[in-house]
């Protein structure tokens, strides 16, 4: 357990000055700021629609969720899986990492967990910044009615679901990035997978939930169908599928690591 903890801490220490780490903080900050600015600058137009507070929140939340869920989240996950492994490929440090008196599972699991933490951090920031910036908008434009509805439950459920739906993609991409040191192979496969996933998710193919890359878009399309926007289940087909993919591939990845010769 201690060896897992120090491995995770070392991952943080190594990557704290890299773009990958800062991307998980900057991405939500920039996207939420841009959306908030958009709402602020076109507040007149939005106010003219006279939307009830819940609909106004949904409009605001879905602006971030729309881009995030469909396009950015899969690519962000692909990039994270790549960057935690690439730090070793690029510096040719796998050999020194595996020559340390730490068990191989800790080294492998620490990398995986660190990628999960970065994704969680990013989605957590999306969730909390959406909430905070919504209230900031209320302060700036008093005529808005953001203060008349509490969106926290919708936000938490949406982002929890998105987080769980991203784990399947993460596990596939993690193995690809572990095996290949170059950027193009895992990125190319991830890109094709994501496009396939989006199409499969959007056309409503009944087996789309079997493709990990379609899980984030299924989360969004599934919850839109619910009559009450805050009343949708978290554990649906695609989430179970994502979690099964994640666990099976995580174990498979470990066997690859133990059998792999460090060149």
């Amino acid at each position: 357990m201690r060896s897992l903890y120090i491995s995770i801490y070392s991952e943080f220490y190594k990557s704290r000055k890299t773009l990958a780490f800062w991307a998980s903080i900057l991405l939500p900050l920039i996207i939420c700021s841009l959306i908030t600015f958009g709402f602020y600058s076109s507040s007149e137009k939005i106010l003219n629609l006279h939307q009830p507070p819940m609909i106004l929140w949904l409009r605001y939340i879905s602006a971030a969720l729309g881009v995030m869920g469909i396009l950015i989240l899969p690519f962000y996950v692909i990039f994270m899986a790549f960057s935690v492994n690439n730090i070793e490929h690029k510096n040719d440090t796998w050999k020194s990492l595996f020559a340390q008196p730490l068990n191989k599972f800790s080294i492998y699991a620490a990398k995986y967990i660190f990628a999960v933490i970065l994704i969680f951090l990013s989605l957590f920031l999306f969730c909390s910044l959406t909430f905070a910036f919504g209230h900031l908008l209320q302060l700036l434009v008093q005529k808005f009615n953001f203060n008349q509805y509490d969106p926290s439950m919708i936000l938490i459920k949406f982002y929890t679901k998105l987080f769980l739906s991203s784990l399947g993609i993460l596990s596939i991409q993690f193995i690809l990035s572990l095996l290949w040191g170059d950027f193009l192979k895992p990125m190319g496969i991830g890109f094709v997978g994501t496009i396939m996933g989006i199409i499969a998710g959007n056309v409503g193919w009944k087996y789309a939930y079997l493709i990990p890359y379609s899980h984030p878009s299924l989360v969004l399309s599934g919850s839109k169908a619910a009559a009450n926007p805050s009343n949708f289940p978290i554990f649906t087909h695609e989430i179970y599928s994502s979690l099964i993919y994640a666990s099976v591939l995580f174990i498979l990845g470990y066997f690859i690591v133990t059998k792999k010769s460090i060149k």
Binding site: I6, S7, Y9, S10, Y13, K14, K17, T18, I87, K90, N91, D92, T93, W94, K95, S96, L97, Q100, P101, L102
Partner: peptide
């Protein structure tokens, strides 16, 4: 095997953390 984006000292500190 050295992390190029870290300083010499940080490379050693990272190793100290691991050990």
């Amino acid at each position: 095997a050295i992390y190029g984006h870290l300083t010499g000292k940080e490379n050693l500190v990272n190793r100290c953390l691991l050990l």
